[in-house]
Amino acid sequence: MKKIDLTYILDDDNIFIFVLMKLLAKNENFNRVLEFKNGKDLLETLTNSEGNIPNVILLDINMPVLDGWQFLEKLEAMPNKDHFNVFIMTSSIDANDIEKSKLFSTVKDFISKPINKEKLDRLLDYF
């Protein structure tokens, strides 16, 4: 299992971010973790990152300004989109959402909340 050097979280729920940070810290396979409250900020960071590309993006769907889908559309339009590994983390269990997520090549998996140790381990299996 490889260690994940850089992880970005995109979610507007403070409580969830707090809890997720705790879980990631306890897992010990996630080195650096940065949180973003809205997609616009994250897109700006990604555009100006100059090679500093996160290994993992953990993405919520229901968010203000840019929701998860709109964020994915913009991400897929980026020239270096093949470098991104997006994992959707949402409280949605709607089959339509799961189907929709498969249309994006950057999305590696769709993980329903709540998140626990096992789900994080499964995420790591992608690397």
Partner: peptide, 11 residues
């Protein structure tokens, strides 16, 4: 409701 309950269960 799921988003809150999932938070609760994680905490």
């Amino acid at each position: 409701i799921r988003s809150h309950t999932s938070n609760l269960s994680m905490i």
